[in-house]
Design a protein around this nucleic acid. Structure first.
Length: 799
RNA sequence: GCCGAGGUGGUGAAAUAGGUAGACACAAGGGACUUAAAAUCCCUCGGUUUUUAAAACCGUGCGGGUUCGAUUCCCGCCCUCGGUACCA
């Protein structure tokens, strides 16, 4: 296939853009600022894959479009450079993570340039550099001071293969998100960020965000707010209460037993001696189970009786206390009152173990029997003074009663957990804490940051059970207590990389600022106007970043509530229906296509495949079509000059209108289609007028930046095409005075006519009736109704 | 299981305040140019029937409904893809 010299052109402009500093942004101009941010990437060693191109290419076209529309567009790039892969790579190949990371960053930066990205590299951030992680550590201390970072011994998700603790968000179906190993539970002292303190605000602020509904929905579900009641039950024979959370206080009289999670801290205390063995065995069996066995696979309910009883505060009924793993320790209080008649799980459990079932809510207040359970709201029965009330009324009344008794009342419960940020790995930001025997966990003074990650470390697969590599580095570990001066040890853990990425968007505008994490005096560039990235971060990065923004706002450092005003998720490119991954061996390298067709063609093909938020299955069949399209433009721009006709201008302005609208909505596929129509029209001729030629190049520019720059220069222009204004649609030129009208009889298409725009209705119907095929279908029929849709159609309803 | 998104030609897809279904592109077939190839250009291209011209009927996952008119709205199914996993 002979084609325009894309290799030469692309290399030429990439070099020129760099040398001339075309992509440098004047950060002082903020009136028309547009902060257009792509989620930064992990600098992996392999080549840029199709997913990278799909994330960054169309996003860059959008940014370029906005620039031509007159915005001062800031589109930075950086690297989320800490993390497990580099460390695992180091262990395998003996290359220090700092070395491989630096190499990978260089590689990735080159490829982003090769793609033609309009990035201002003077604002690059690298989360693994001391200049950056100094401020990640500062962030930790800031949260620590605010009481938002704390240490606690907790059952945590442990990945035996990665040899580290994982956040809940990093566990999928009981498997490690990274390596698919089965995750086990462990008790370790870990650092947490108190994201739950912001649960309510994280939920309510979703309203004001211009985010995909899907994503907001996922965050809402993840936060999992539910409104109900807390109730304290007195333990029989103990001076102790056990609290439960329930959304169905109206079913309190139907409670016939009580369940504690096996991990509940009262289990040991209350278990009767004759039940001790059964209980201990059960707890042991539970601990042995993996997350998978405990949830998805094992559906049959299990549990054992502890021998203890609690007392229902409203009717004095004694409820046997069981332990069962269908009650989750980490939600609510880890204990429930069980109402078999009103809850499917309790019903199943009660049936299996022969526990009582008391009907307390029915649809209409009449007894239905206890063969099935009724989980809806209805009318309360068998509930003393509350009988006859609606479920809602009973809940209110019971809440009031519990409040009066001082043993409960209305309560809101969230599923969201605090964010576990400790990682027992080397390649991350060290937690800036010193553990002193006398003073406990003490902050490293902020003027001593960063706590540097030592270079001279021997990385091994495993160091024993749960110890961070840093723990073996004496020089790093040994220090003195900042508070009392006594010898003390550093915290050996590093932070989850999601901490690094939870604030990077704040740093970009003044990425080299040495005084502070961000320049609080010059925060006008924030918040981010448009954020683009994958939906896989819906309940992780996107939630963490919102939390950190709110925490820093409360520290008086930020003046806005939300970091990302608008959010867009690009779709996923799959191969044969599956996500591309090295392990599946179904990756497709873009390199051959770049070599054969060039970067402009490749970017445009990805955009042309379908809607940007849908992604699609990879298939290289159509790429020639895009290459032909660019070749046609190349040739058209060498046509001789002519005068534009009225119809030429109409087509041109129609194109301006559609392409502009499409690009505003990131509908790149249809924008390209509209341009193709214009190009096909021009291609029929041998000449082109200068206005059309000029406009065509401008419309093409954001989509195919290299060829557009070259054509622009060839047309005799000195400065970059991206300094030009976006073409304006002119309705006077774009609108036709004629229009096509569809003709129907009984809603069936029978013909089409072209008429003047200002035609009167009687004239139109008369013409419609005269139409040959219409006359045929109207013959001998009675017209009952004439439906006229202006500018569209005429429909005769006949009998 | 629950929640969400989506099913349109051989393929990727367009078009929904209800109004000409299949724009644009790929593939395929035919033709022009060429010694030949590449490139380029022209024609055909959802199905069926019929053909002199043209036209008719069917067709947007399946079955109903509302409407002059439904890919679009409503009801009931089927399938695919995401999210979630006993959350009391």
């Amino acid at each position: 296939m002979s084609s325009y010299p894309f290799k030469k052109i692309e290399a030429k402009w990439q070099k020129l853009w760099d040398e001339r500093g075309d992509h440098l942004v004047n950060m002082d101009v903020i009136e028309n600022k547009y902060y257009c941010l792509n989620m930064f990437g992990y600098p992996s060693g392999s080549q840029f894959h199709i997913g990278h191109w799909y994330q960054y290419g169309p996003a860059d076209s959008y940014a370029r479009f906005l620039k031509m529309k007159g915005y001062n567009v800031f589109q930075p790039q950086g690297f989320d450079a800490f993390g497990l892969p580099a460390e695992n790579y180091a262990i395998k190949h003996g290359v220090h993570p700092a070395v491989s990371t630096a190499r990978n960053i260089e590689n990735m930066r080159q490829q982003l340039k090769r793609m033609g990205g309009m990035y201002d590299w003077t604002h690059e951030v690298n989360t693994s550099s001391p200049e950056y992680y100094k401020w990640t550590q500062w962030l930790f201390l800031q949260l620590f001071e605010m009481g938002l970072a704390y240490q606690r011994e907790a059952p945590v998700n442990w990945c035996p293969s990665c040899v580290t603790v994982l956040a809940n968000e990093q566990v999928t179906d009981g498997l490690c998100e990274r390596c698919d190993s089965q995750v086990t539970k462990k008790f370790l002292k870990q650092w947490f960020f108190r994201i739950t303190a912001y649960a309510e605000e994280l939920l309510t602020c979703l309203e004001q965000l211009q985010w995909p509904e899907k994503t907001k929905h996922m965050q809402r579900n993840w936060i999992g707010k539910s409104t109900g009641s807390s109730i304290k039950f007195r333990l029989k024979d103990f001076d102790e209460d056990i609290e439960v959370f329930t959304t169905r206080a109206d079913t309190l009289y139907g409670a016939t037993y009580f369940v504690l999670a096996p991990e509940h801290n009262l289990v040991k205390k209350i278990t009767k001696p004759d039940r001790l063995k059964a209980v201990t065995d059960y707890i042991e069996a539970t601990n042995k189970k993996t997350e998978i066995e405990r949830t998805s696979v094992e559906r049959e309910k299990t549990g054992v009786f502890t021998g203890a009883f609690v007392i229902n505060p409203l009717n004095g009924r004694e409820l046997p206390v069981w332990i069962a793993d269908y009650v989750i320790a980490s939600y609510g209080t880890g204990a429930i009152m069980a109402v078999p008649s009103g809850d499917e799980r309790d019903f199943e459990f009660a049936k299996k173990f022969g526990l009582d079932i008391i009907e307390v809510v029915t649809p209409d207040g009449s007894e239905q029997g206890t063969d099935v359970c009724f989980t809806e709201y209805g009318v309360v029965i068998n509930s003393g003074e509350y009988s006859g009330m609606s479920s809602q009324a009973a809940q209110e009344a019971i809440n009031r009663k519990l409040s009066h008794m001082g043993i409960g009342g209305r309560k809101v419960q969230y599923k969201l957990h605090d964010w576990l940020i400790s990682r027992q790995r080397y390649w991350g930001a060290p937690i800036p804490i010193v553990h002193c025997e006398k003073c406990g966990a003490v902050s490293v003074p902020k003027d001593q940051l960063p706590v540097r990650l030592p270079d001279d470390i021997e990385l091994k697969r495993t160091y024993g059970d749960d110890i961070s590599p840093l723990a073996h580095h004496d020089e790093f570990m040994q220090t003195s207590c900042p508070s009392c001066g006594a010898p003390a040890l550093r915290d050996a853990d590093t932070m989850d990389t999601f901490v690094c990425s939870s604030w990077y968007y704040l740093r970009y505008p003044h990425a080299k600022y040495a005084e502070f994490a961000f320049d609080t005096e010059h925060m006008d560039w924030l918040p981010v106007d448009q954020y683009i990235g994958g939906v896989e971060h819906a309940t992780m990065h996107l939630l963490y970043a919102r939390f950190i923004t709110k925490a820093l706002r409360d520290a008086g450092l930020l003046k806005f509530d939300e970091p990302f005003i608008r959010l867009f998720h690009q779709g996923t490119i799959t191969k044969d229906g599956a996500k591309m991954s090295k392990s599946r061996g179904n990756t497709v390298s873009p390199d051959d296509f770049i070599e054969k067709y060039g970067s402009d063609t490749f970017r445009n093909y990805l955009m042309f495949m379908g809607p940007y938020d849908e992604g699609g299955d990879w298939n290289d069949k159509g790429i020639t079509g895009i290459h032909r399209f660019l070749n046609k433009i190349w040739r058209i721009c060498q046509f001789g000059e002519s005068q534009a006709t009225k119809s030429d201008l109409r087509i041109l302005h129609q194109t301006i209108k559609s392409v502009t609208g499409d690009l505003e909505n990131m509908k790149f596929n249809t924008a390209i289609s509209r341009l193709m129509e214009l190009v096909n029209h021009l291609n029929l001729k041998e000449t082109v007028d200068s206005i059309t030629k000029r406009t065509l190049i401008l419309l093409l520019a954001p989509l195919a930046p290299h060829i557009a720059e070259e054509l622009w220069q060839m047309a005799g222009n000195q400065r970059s095409v991206f300094r030009e204004n976006w073409p304006q649609y002119n309705p006077e030129l774009g609108e036709s005075e004629k229009m096509k009208i569809a003709l129907q009889v009984n809603g069936k298409l029978r013909g089409e006519i072209e008429v003047e725009k200002n035609i009167s209705k009687p004239e139109l119907t008369a013409m419609a009736k005269q139409h040959r095929n219409m006359a045929e279908h109207l013959k001998g029929k009675e017209i009952l109704r004439e439906v006229i849709v202006p500018g569209r159609l005429v429909n005769f309803v006949v009998r």
